[in-house]
Design a protein around this nucleic acid. Sequence first.
DNA 1: ACTTTCCAATTGTCAGACATTTACTTGCCC
DNA 2: GGGCAAGTAAATGTCTGACAATTGGAAAGT
Lengths: 244, 244
Amino acid sequence: MKTDLNENEDLSTQIAEAIRDAIIEGSLIVDQRLPSEAELCEKFDVGRSTVREALKRLAAQNLIRTQRGAAGGAFVNRMSFEEAYDQQITTSTLLLSMNRVDFETACEARYALERSCAPLSAQRRTADQLATMRAEIHRQSQPGLTDEAFCASDVAFHRALVDGAGNPVLSYQLAGAVEAMQPLMNMITYTQRDRERIVGLHTRLADAIEGQDGDGADNTLSELAEYTIELGRRRLAVKQSSSV
Amino acid sequence: MKTDLNENEDLSTQIAEAIRDAIIEGSLIVDQRLPSEAELCEKFDVGRSTVREALKRLAAQNLIRTQRGAAGGAFVNRMSFEEAYDQQITTSTLLLSMNRVDFETACEARYALERSCAPLSAQRRTADQLATMRAEIHRQSQPGLTDEAFCASDVAFHRALVDGAGNPVLSYQLAGAVEAMQPLMNMITYTQRDRERIVGLHTRLADAIEGQDGDGADNTLSELAEYTIELGRRRLAVKQSSSV
DNA sequence: ACTTTCCAATTGTCAGACATTTACTTGCCC
DNA sequence: GGGCAAGTAAATGTCTGACAATTGGAAAGT
């Protein structure tokens, strides 16, 4: 691990980078204990607060975990799929909300990615995942559902579809695409008629997945993508005309 | 922003979460200045080091940036695509290296995602992106290239293909898939004959992209995926037989 | 052998001090 | 009035020392 700190960057940043590189490079392995704060102070020749700030940076990235007490210390953390999911979703959400990504671009990306799961999901989905999809469709078809609840159900439906591919790496990658779209979808207030159309497409999707019809699922997803984009366009038009 | 700290979690963790939630929820907007450290001390009724550790956590997630000096302080950071890329790559790399994800699962995910870009890339790629692909193919066909250099070129090639879709959200999502695979691909030592096969497939891919043949690109990517998985299997078999 | 007590190591938190950076103000000179 | 220089204040960055809280293990006693 590099211990020389030259540049004009913050000391805590440099120390965090040095340790992070050691973890990525493999010289610090999972569950291995890092030197104690006092030892790191000596090694890098800095004060304890500086070391602590560096460790907090690493903890924020789920790279280490800390434990108090006699046999405590900082340990290299095994990056779990769940932690990675959450990071993905947070990052994607902020990226979309802070960069004026237009609805169509986000939509295109989302459905393009989801379509890559459809054939796999048609082959491998479990009965449980299929049941989840059906249950969410049923919920979506109930009248009086709030927009938020409809969107949440929509996310759950698509998540089940994605998980149906049985590939955790794929599920992780898709987490951002599916979940981060939720706030954007909330901007589109579905009318009852819009909902019916979407429920219809969802039903066709579930049918295709049930019948192991990968191409059918793919085509239905295309239609769904187009329809969602069209809804977005309509919504945008309404907004603009009302603001002028 | 919540300012009550009850639970038995670390104070700095709770403070970081409170501020993070405020950013996500939108009550702190991009480029807005956070209260100074001293003010945050009062607001949360904690010491300065605790506040600083919380801020470092947020800085590590690219949620804020800090500036020294009179008009300095902590500001809500606009999450840039580049920052999001880097996070994606780091997280994906660690996720794959720490969880014994088998080569086939990772490969399947990678190529499934990449195939979702192929039709778009065939439609929209710029001349520049196509030129990059051709240049990388040329580099890959040169003898005497190290494995590392070949893999790096491979990544550059696929990255150009992905960027060709002209969708920054898609490029961001694919960053992890394409780049994080590099260390895994390094495990497969290509023979000269393997390289020739891959260069051939790359050439067919570039041809399809050039001819706006989305289906052709898609099919070639499928072949490439199969071939890569087969290579991985062969490599695994060699390893096992030599270790037994 | 079991339980209790104590101890030592380690992280979590606080307070105070000084260093460093930076924008702004003040005052001087022309 | 304008421009330059010095000074000043505000803010983050760093160091030191202290104490609190937690926890595993050792020591002691039964």
